[in-house]
């Protein structure tokens, strides 16, 4: 006893896990929900959606979310605002342009992704400054 235990921390682990999850998404492996956004079907993992979005957390955390494997978002975000958010969830990179920022902001608000909402506001604010 008394041997000094120590921890090896693999600092890339979280980004490596996320990168593998994105590869699973792109190949349709273990994706368990189809999101109909603006009529466009997008496959994803509920676990990733619930981890990243307050809206999906409220939908999938309860028993009601168990059987749901197709989810349409009527009156919800348009695809051009939603798709960048789905990519963000799986890559940590949010692609914004002056043309898409308002749609991404609307989608992030709908999905209750407050930190992304703030980043969109900062981007839009900055793009108006001379």
């Amino acid at each position: 006893e008394g041997a000094l235990g120590y921890v090896r921390e693999f600092t890339r682990h979280s980004s490596d896990v996320l990168s593998n999850l994105n590869e699973l998404r792109l190949r349709g492996i273990l994706t368990d929900v189809t999101l109909l956004v603006g009529g466009q079907p997008l496959r994803a993992h509920k676990a990733v959606l619930i981890a990243c979005s307050g809206f999906f957390y409220s939908i999938f955390r309860g028993r009601a979310g168990v059987g749901v494997d197709v989810l349409s978002l009527p009156g919800g975000p348009e695809a051009r605002g939603f798709a960048p958010l789905l990519d963000f969830m799986y890559t940590s990179r949010l692609r914004l342009s002056p043309a898409t920022a308002p749609a991404v902001l609307a989608a992030a608000t709908y999905l209750q992704m407050e930190h992304v909402v703030q980043a969109c506001h900062r981007f839009i604010q900055a793009s108006y400054e001379p």
Binding site: I50, A51, G54, Y57, R93, M113, E114, H115, V116
Partner: peptide, 22 residues
């Protein structure tokens, strides 16, 4: 031709925190 992409690092929290089991 894709526009030039500037990357801005956001150091703060990125997503909500799932509440710990009460």
């Amino acid at each position: 031709h894709e526009g030039v992409v500037a990357t801005v690092k956001e150091a703060g929290r990125s997503i909500h925190e799932i509440p710990r089991e009460e």
